[in-house]
Write a protein that binds this DNA or RNA. Sequence first.
DNA 1: GTAATGTCTTTTATCGGGAAAAAACATTTT
DNA 2: AAAATGTTTTTTCCCGATAAAAGACATTAC
Lengths: 300, 300
Amino acid sequence: MSKSNNVYKDAYNRCLRLLDETKSLPSEPELGTLLGVSRTTVRSILARMEETGLIDWNKRNKTVLRAPRPEDFFPEEETDSLAEIIERSFMRRLLAGGAEAGMQINELELAREIGVGTTSVREFLIRFSRFGLIEKRRNSHWVLKGFTRAFALELTEIREMFELRSAAAFAALPEDSAVWADLDRLEGEHRQLASQIATRFNEFSELDERFHRLIHRASHNRFIVDFYDVIAMIFHYHYQWNKAEERQRNEVAVQEHLAYIAALRSRDPGKVDAACRKHLKSARQTLLSSIPEGRQAQPA
Amino acid sequence: MSKSNNVYKDAYNRCLRLLDETKSLPSEPELGTLLGVSRTTVRSILARMEETGLIDWNKRNKTVLRAPRPEDFFPEEETDSLAEIIERSFMRRLLAGGAEAGMQINELELAREIGVGTTSVREFLIRFSRFGLIEKRRNSHWVLKGFTRAFALELTEIREMFELRSAAAFAALPEDSAVWADLDRLEGEHRQLASQIATRFNEFSELDERFHRLIHRASHNRFIVDFYDVIAMIFHYHYQWNKAEERQRNEVAVQEHLAYIAALRSRDPGKVDAACRKHLKSARQTLLSSIPEGRQAQPA
DNA sequence: GTAATGTCTTTTATCGGGAAAAAACATTTT
DNA sequence: AAAATGTTTTTTCCCGATAAAAGACATTAC
């Protein structure tokens, strides 16, 4: 086996959901852009949908014959890319404790344990290294630096530097910039979430990411924009790891975001700076509080 | 052929240079740390040195029999790691012009052209992507973002942010910190270079890197320290690319460094900030002046 | 003649294998 | 017994091969 067809399976599942909405599917290129895959994959999907009697396919005609049933879908776990599988496995080990700083990482062992080739693990580790949690010894193994307090402080230091600058740039954007409409939309979503916070608090993290990415984009600096990947990754796993007080934390954060948005719209640099600082400070606190005091980096 | 023995060859060459200095070689583990390789490699080296009559090797006894001759050395080009070879090839193409922004990068073609496997090229591209010059399209090719004016501006923006902060942290370091001795040593080297600038101006770039890395380390932030890799890479190739006015540029830079060092030693935040700003401004000018106006990023 | 479909080619993603290099273990030397 | 050498095992690095997916070209439909 050289390559899984997860791209096809994932696109197939997403295509199934489209069937509910229409009586006939659009052209192949159109479907391709819609699903984010090539025509080759689209045609495989259509072929299978015809086989399973979901659609009638004749050239331009793709008539929906019946609604998709649960058993039509490919299992969720078959739709993940190898990179996602490896990342999850790796992060589970990392956060599951017993992953002390200084510990060495074995490509072969990881590959065997996850059940993938060494090449994929190597590529993952190289990609992952930019998050600052692991480090390569030349011609030798990787070393785990650990998800320590020091790491969190270094991460948030950069985050604050970057976001304060981005927020200032955002506020200075001209009235007719498209970002203001984006901000309006995000504000609406925040208000909605705020009003239903009791039940929907777990939807915050996704909204959080979109909000901060919008702000960072205003920097027009690829290094700042890219750095948000590091933050997003850490917060993503951090949210899964630390569920304590989640509802309350998110409720506070939503309010801070709303104040932050208001400050941005005021375009007053002083207000923007203050609102941004306040929110980032509590974000830092949240992150820090989830790191056990004991877990300290070993002196090299 | 699955793996070149460049580690061995490079270590062998470096070991040859040791022969000039002593009458007998130290123990295997000691040689290993000295050369930065494992005992396995050390033993291969010793075996060959015995074969070629350079040493007499009997257990702990490694007597030097003769001085190494030029033909004892492995050719330079055989001592480079694949990663270095690929990087050089890639950068040559990138800087040789004709590498317009938006152009797509073909792994297979690159691999064939350089004469290496695709895996190595892929790994290189992944590692290289953090420099912000290329970007991956999911399940598809890489896109060249180009060495444009925008890139240089974004790079220097971050650099200035990071270095101002590092310099401030540096100046705040306690008297008994080891960095002051490092700074003294660097100052000495700067003075030496300054006095012989007419002939040794091309040695500046190496000194420059060491100086700035020392400052960045004072930040105690891995993201700041790691970011210097991006700067170092760009300046490394930039220096090779743009030789115009090299002597004069370096002469100015050495003087700026000396002023910067004096400011650091004064520990006056205002002076440090001013000296740092001044130097970074001229560094930015130098970089920008080497980028042809015409080379602009295409709108996506 | 534009945009779709049909067909063929190229490229990417991933694996297994094998040599180089590191690391671990066993034995000897001082 | 500490540190070296001798030997064996494991891991890293890199290639070639192959299925999945993308992309290019040819043909047909509107």
